[in-house]
Amino acid sequence: MENFEPVIVAFCCHYCAYTAADMAGSQRLTYPANVKIIRVPCSGKVDALHIVKAFEKGADGVYVAGCLEGDCHFKNGNVRAARRVESVRKYLEEIGLEGERLEMVTMSAGMGYRFAQVATEMTEKIRKMGPSPIHLALAGGASEARKAANI
């Protein structure tokens, strides 16, 4: 896959991360277009199933973005989210996907720059890792995926 452009899903909580994304917008901070945001009220709402489904459909990376520790508008949804992300990471490893493709990040509503920075770093990281094997399998058919799996 030459010129690999990863597709990254960012589940963003409404109160902090999504607001930070808006802030990045109003400050005109640029970040890679690879990151696509799905808004949720709280990072604790992000279902393990939805993370896994994103990978199953071909996501190269996923991150859950919540409020800073202690700042969750629903007490501790972000802490739950972090634990959930940790367990889904292990599950991904079991399946044979790199756990690093999934991240939990936190930021406050005012941190537009951090949103842009996280989006950039995540994109860079995934770009270096290359496409997810699932993405490859879905895109290139079985034979290519087999080749990739053997290497």
Binding site: E56, Y91, I134
Partner: peptide, 21 residues
Amino acid sequence: RKEVGLLASGLHMAVLKSGAT
């Protein structure tokens, strides 16, 4: 239902990864 969904996704990915469908 939840675990069924997770396992189905996981199995699907594992199979895809092995080059099969």
